[in-house]
Design a protein around this nucleic acid. Structure first.
Lengths: 170, 170
DNA sequence: CTCCGATGTATCGAATCGATATAACTATAT
DNA sequence: ATATAGTTATATCGATTCGATACATCGGAG
């Protein structure tokens, strides 16, 4: 997934390593480490998906190659798992997905969140009434999970609504 | 942190590997893999913090040793970073923290979340009005971050209020 | 009776993390 | 002028964690 993120960010503009780390961190949900980033850059370079040109000073400016662009396009369409980070990353690059496919991505995510919500509610209720008596803090964790999933679905529904009206308006 | 989680769960009752994975997953925020769990068990056993007794069938029932209990107590007090997962894990075992120290843990977390909220709001507003024009999806991600942090603080505040009244009532 | 999913332990390679090293540049304070 | 400290920048190391996979047993459904 880091490879995907790097290709996506470099697609927008050439960047050097340090700048990539900042850009990725600025997305808000992944503080990637240098120990991941630099090996990933070398990996991608060896595969021919990116290439380095020396920038000013010590900087190494990387840019995507044509095979890299193609690879990015493929990864964009691969069925995503339901990891939060993966979805957010995919969303960050949803602008590169064909407009008619975007709604599907969002709706798949909604289904996954709905499932999660059911599971969270079930364990919350089960803990409340069951034979086991979890302490206050475990209960709070379960409640947090229910609430944050609900909030996430609400946020996603707004995004879906916006997507629908964008599709209708276009 | 996995070591901490294992010691905490084994403190409650002896469990075998598969059961530990389930119990950890049931906490709701960490689906640990066997590739992490079994090496961790061997690590802890070698350090003398846990010991295995053969349970029924193939099962290996692990239980905490006295050094393990002490180690767990130490880890409980170590200053936590601001990782979400670390906090939730700490919260799951907050019942083992001395009652007069619990409020401090929660308030430290609140400070960290408040900082995060400021950062999230700053980048949200900056992106809205700045020279850069991020696409709809990036904006949505930033808004999500703001909202979920707000919701998390609200949830935490309820927990803190409950903690205060518990302290007063006792 | 057989197939299938859950239980259970285990390992492998790869990805990622967190800490650290190094060094130059920049601003601030003394 | 010159320490001091923080940011920029690339890089590597060991340890942790992940995801996939292997293998075997057990219980229930068809």
């Amino acid at each position: 997934m880091l490879d995907f993120a790097i290709l996506g960010l470099l697609r927008e503009q050439p960047r050097h390593g340090y700048e990539l780390k900042r850009a990725l961190g600025d997305l808000g949900f992944w503080q990637v480490s240098f120990g991941s980033l630099y090996p990933a850059l070398r990996r991608l370079e060896k595969q021919g998906f990116i290439e380095a040109a020396k920038g000013e000073g010590r900087r190494k400016a990387y840019r995507v190659t044509e095979p890299g662009r193609i690879r990015f396009g493929e990864m964009l369409l691969e069925s995503g798992d339901d990891s939060d980070r993966d979805f957010q990353l995919r969303l960050a690059f949803l602008g590169y997905v064909a407009p008619q496919s975007r709604l599907g991505v969002l709706e798949d995510r909604r289904t996954a969140l709905q499932d999660r919500l059911h599971g969270a509610r079930r364990s919350f209720r089960g803990a409340r009434s069951g034979a086991r008596n979890p302490d206050r803090y475990r209960m709070a964790l379960m409640e947090r999970r229910v609430r944050s999933t609900e909030a996430d679905i609400a946020w996603l529904d707004e995004l879906i609504a916006g997507e629908r009206s964008a599709a209708a308006g276009a």
